[in-house]
Amino acid sequence: MTETELTTPQSPSPITSDQVTPALACYGISKRFKTIQALDDVSISVPRGSIFGFLGPNGAGKSTLIRVVAGLIAADKGHFDILGNSSLKGHGVRKDMSALVDRADFYKNLSAYQNMKILGRITGHDSDEHINGLLDLLGLYERRKDKVKTFSQGMKQRLGLAQSLLPDPKLLVLDEPTTGLDPQGMHEIRDFILKIAAEQNVTIFLSSHLLHEVELICSDIALIFNGKLATQGSMQKIFREIDNVTIELEVEDSKTTLAFLEKTDLVTQITPLANAISIEIHYNKIPELIRLMSAAKINIFSVSQRNRLENYFLSLMEGR
């Protein structure tokens, strides 16, 4: 690819076209299954280097869009670009992309190594060193010769991730990667996603209906309802749009704090909890409240915002 140098007045250093081209850009994608409009003119842009959360309730159209991008189903309208390559040019659009759609499935009568070999052979990434390295990365090296039918769901999901990393992708698409896993398995997959995003400079496009999971790892999000895109942007930008949020304060002296909070007009609702105080406050007023509490010599041990994304998600749903 020819790298066109772009300069902006604000930026003294040149920006290459590789940096400004989104990892994934969808343009007006629509898909209909008989009577159901699964996707309706969906356009999204996934920045390079981001961990992008694609959210929506069950049946919203998340998996449909991912299957369109992954080449499993054809869109009725629209197209998409992956790292600057257009889907209009055919299957080559996915040369730098890999996807793990839905749960990981395998040739169960074959071993973990053989399953890796079959997929690796397609793109020429089937050297023993590469395959064993990935199996080791995912903690499956010791079980590489075992048939996949003997694996637990968590191990299968890890093997699916190892398979998806075979072609050294620059964009990794994961459709509900923690579905069916126990809390430990979910934690392992989350850690792994963060690790590969940081260490291998892979853009991750992740669909999920687990808002807490997305809040923990994603830098950018898009929300979809009934096949239509509701919003998209960076997590910070979206959180700034949230008016009132619920936060929990863990303080040394609850009595004094409650008295202080009742006097201030920053807080709209106060609920004392067993070991903390829950308050509802405008998002932009949080820094001011903390400043005032510090000035009043109230010792604060922690300020935690609970279910921020969930609140936002629900408020959007209610508005529909």
Binding site: G71, G90, H91, A104, D105, Y107, L119, I122, G160
Partner: peptide, 15 residues
């Protein structure tokens, strides 16, 4: 039936 098409067909190869 095994769901392996989902994995195989996402690779950059034509149908």
């Amino acid at each position: 039936a095994n769901g392996t098409f989902r994995v195989y067909a996402t690779r950059p190869i034509s149908r």
